[in-house]
Amino acid sequence: MVNIDQGESQPSDLDRIARSPEVSREGWIQTVEDVQAMMADRENEGYETLFLPSGHTTPKNPESGETEEWGLSYIVPGNKVDPFIEFNERANFSETAVYQSTAGENVFIVTECIDPEAKLSLFIGGAYRIRFSPPMVRTAMEEGKMYSHLKRLDGTLIHTFEHEHPESFFPDPDQFYAYETDI
């Protein structure tokens, strides 16, 4: 449990993630600023938006755990779970846009799930180490699809999105394959 001194407030999810030692602060701050600008653009077009900043993002391949689940696994902050569930119940996401940048070994990614008819746009943001991603990238390219898994901190699955066009996530797969090891 975190102890907060009198007069201090609990840090927001975005502040907590930005201070994480596993994530480049500058890259995450830029990602959040970009998401806020994209959300403002969508809202100007009449969309309702929701941003899920992941507390931890893991690239998973079918052999990386007890299940054959693969794709990007995002830990959703507890205070975002109910708003997401309510938002998702009203949506039929039919479009996906992927925005990402790389800084060193970190990939900063935002996946936008769009329902143009209901005018709903969900932004899922996270960061992961590129060196852990080659098996996931290879699987996505071979299968012709990609997955985003939203989970609670305890690992309970909240929702899975299946995305067509893995090349949207990995426009240059060789950039990821360069980190493969023979271990």
Rank of each mutant, 00 (worst) to 15 (best):
residue 32 V to Q: 02
residue 33 E to W: 04
residue 34 D to Y: 15
residue 38 M to K: 14
residue 44 N to M: 10
residue 45 E to C: 00
residue 47 Y to Q: 00
residue 49 T to K: 06
residue 50 L to C: 05
residue 53 P to T: 02
residue 53 P to A: 06
residue 57 T to F: 02
residue 59 P to Y: 03
residue 59 P to I: 05
residue 59 P to Q: 09
residue 60 K to D: 06
residue 62 P to Y: 07
residue 63 E to H: 06
residue 67 T to Y: 14
residue 68 E to S: 14
residue 69 E to P: 06
residue 70 W to Y: 07
residue 71 G to V: 00
residue 72 L to I: 05
residue 72 L to R: 04
residue 73 S to G: 10
residue 74 Y to G: 03
residue 75 I to W: 04
residue 77 P to G: 12
residue 77 P to T: 10
residue 79 N to D: 13
residue 79 N to V: 03
residue 80 K to Y: 15
residue 80 K to D: 15
residue 82 D to T: 15
residue 82 D to V: 14
residue 84 F to I: 01
residue 85 I to S: 09
residue 88 N to W: 12
residue 90 R to V: 09
residue 90 R to H: 12
residue 92 N to H: 11
residue 100 Q to A: 14
residue 101 S to C: 02
residue 104 G to Q: 00
residue 108 F to Q: 08
residue 109 I to Q: 13
residue 109 I to V: 12
residue 111 T to I: 14
residue 114 I to S: 08
residue 118 A to P: 07
residue 120 L to N: 05
residue 125 G to A: 14
residue 127 A to C: 13
residue 128 Y to M: 00
residue 128 Y to A: 00
residue 129 R to W: 11
residue 129 R to F: 10
residue 131 R to K: 10
residue 132 F to P: 09
residue 133 S to K: 02
residue 134 P to W: 05
residue 135 P to L: 03
residue 138 R to N: 11
residue 141 M to T: 01
residue 143 E to G: 09
residue 145 K to I: 07
residue 146 M to N: 08
residue 147 Y to P: 01
residue 147 Y to T: 03
